[in-house]
Amino acid sequence: MKNALRNKNFLVGIFLTGFILAIALISFVWTPFDTTKLIIADRLKAPNLTYLLGTDHFGRDIFSMVMVGARNSIAVAFFAVGIGILIGVPLGCWAAAKRGFVDELLMRSSDIIFAFPALLSAVMITAIFGPSATNAIIAIGIFNIPVFARVARGAALSIWSREYILAARASGKGAVRITREHILPNITNILVVQGTIQFSLGILAEAGLSYVGLGTQPPDVSWGRMLNEAQTMMSIAPHMAIIPGVAIIVTVLGLNLLGDGLRDLLDPRLQRER
């Protein structure tokens, strides 16, 4: 705890992430304006006292939209990371426990997935199955699977070579039980750090997909979606494009700093002055 308060990356990261998360949660109960109500008379207003961050081409309050958008962007990234962890980690642990053919197969298949530029395949998947937030989650999630499988496998392999694992095996525990009781608790830290990184990549991927019209669909709001609508308004209402971008940057920056901070805090062996 004392270390946490001294780690600048962690502090700034947790502050920024917490701020965005709070905004997203508050949006469920309160936003300054209703984002589904269009006030055409007040459209394309620059930031002012009534509309703190201005309005869009339908007269919707951008501050409220950023709040609601936070919710959708975070949800997509969250579930995409969830898919990666729920499928990837068991696969990685399985490969580490079995070695041999299973391991080789898993590593080669992840090589193949890594050969596909992630965004290109996400565009293909969402285009094939229809553009929607759910399909964006699946598309981003698929690419998280090999990432978590590899990280889990690498970390699990190093635990398997420890002596206390040998002791556990000698006492008659099976591979499943050893994985559950000894491997998983010891690789959680690494997975948390990787999860933070993938979360920030997920936010960026959702923004990209929604920006080209393949992610969140109107009338739902997400930051990428807002940028998509802002582009044609750029010359008359630049604030429409600047604000959602800043929201994305703050979130991704916060998550990255949090990830760096957590890595230093959770894994003292890696602690180095960089």
């Binding site: 990209g208 802002a230 750029m234 971008g245 991704v252 990255n256």
Partner: peptide
């Protein structure tokens, strides 16, 4: 560079268009 990593390239592109082209 930390901020640079967090910037989505297409957002940066929109901004560049606004500044240098518009």
């Amino acid at each position: 560079t930390q901020v640079g990593i967090a910037i989505p390239n297409f957002w940066f592109a929109i901004l560049l268009v606004y500044i240098f082209a518009i």
